[in-house]
């Protein structure tokens, strides 16, 4: 098991390294010069030269990369081209909001998708299954911003149950913070649950065909015990692995949901940095999002093997 884990971790290292090269090269791919691109063609040449020197853009590439990577490993992503503030400070500032949204969204989607996927997968071809499958096909077609607008219109603008937009840190005012999280989290959760429900369903269908399921019935175990203790428990390893991939949808979804609900998370930084051509920021965000995705999937793979006793010996 330890060897397996080590092997997995070692596989992730070149991936993370490749990602860092990619993010670095990305900014240098910009046609012309990032500073000119940012400030415009008619900018003052002395200012441009000054900025270029400040960001180290006038030095050879390998040297630039080395310095940049050394900084990144220390948690220093450089300075924002736009605001001149340290990028790490800006991002760290935004992380709690995004985590709160993504976490709550994930909980919502798990609460919807797991029961739906299990119900559909336990009886493939049944009426309930076709109903749930059609619902997921429709759900996959509904964009997060559309869903969010509907929810906002209904719960905030018509029923006035919750505020329509905004964010309060949880530590400042927990109750208000949760009230404000409700709609964005519901939007994000509903947007992701069709993917998750389909993944759950196919994992459950596969397990439900195993001989131990009818044998469990022959033993006279209760249906709930069979669907949870046998089917879901055996589908869990592949579900956890699938969950890792769902993180990509969670990230993409949160970028859109943050924009809709004016939620000050890292997703707003992504759109802001691209529109404002703040390349150092884009570079840092690519690395952080990509790195997070790689690490989360690594953790999920390790969890997957922990959940399956058959992997332990190999």
């Amino acid at each position: 098991m330890l060897r397996y884990a080590l092997g997995r971790v070692l596989l992730a290292v070149p991936l993370l390294f490749g990602l860092s090269v990619l993010s670095f090269v990305y900014v240098r791919l910009i046609p012309g010069d990032p500073v000119t691109a940012m400030l415009g063609v008619n900018s003052n040449p002395t200012v441009v030269a000054q900025l270029r020197e400040q960001f180290g853009l006038d030095r050879p590439l390998p040297g630039q990369y080395g310095d940049w990577l050394a900084g990144v490993l220390r948690g220093d992503f450089g300075v924002s081209f736009r605001s001149q503030m340290p990028i790490s400070t800006i991002i760290v500032d935004r992380i709690p909001a995004t985590l709160q949204l993504a976490g709550a969204g994930l909980v919502v989607s798990l609460l919807i998708a797991i029961p739906a996927g299990v119900a559909a997968g336990m009886r493939p071809g049944s009426r309930l299954d076709s109903l749930i499958t059609s619902a997921t096909l429709f759900g996959l077609a509904v964009p997060a911003f559309f869903l969010g607008t509907l929810l906002m219109l209904l719960f905030a603008l018509t029923l006035h149950l919750v505020p329509s937009q905004g964010y309060v840190p949880f530590a400042d005012d927990p109750a208000q913070s949760l009230r404000l999280t409700l709609l964005p989290a519901l939007t994000l959760g509903l947007a992701i649950s069709p993917y998750l429900a389909r993944l759950t369903r196919s994992a459950v269908v596969e397990v439900a065909q195993e001989p131990f399921v009818p044998f469990a019935r022959a033993k006279g175990l209760a249906p709930r015990k069979i669907s949870v203790g046998y089917v879901l428990r055996n589908a869990l390893p592949s579900l956890v692995a699938a969950l890792g991939l769902t993180v990509a949808s969670l990230m993409a979804g949160s970028i859109v949901v943050e924009a809709l609900f004016n939620w000050p998370g890292t997703g707003r930084l992504v759109t802001g940095a691209v529109t404002e051509r703040d390349y150092a920021m884009v570079e840092a965000l690519l690395l952080i999002y990509g790195g997070l995705f790689i690490v989360v999937n690594l953790v999920c793979e390790l969890a997957q093997s922990l959940l399956d006793p058959r992997v332990r010996l190999t």
Binding site: Y26, P31, A252, T271, Y289, G290
Partner: peptide, 18 residues
């Protein structure tokens, strides 16, 4: 695998950034 490690919307946003 490397490109797969970046969520696709982010890849798209990256290209648009360029």
């Amino acid at each position: 695998d490397l490109f797969f490690a970046i969520p696709s919307l982010l890849v798209a946003i990256g290209v648009i950034g360029l």
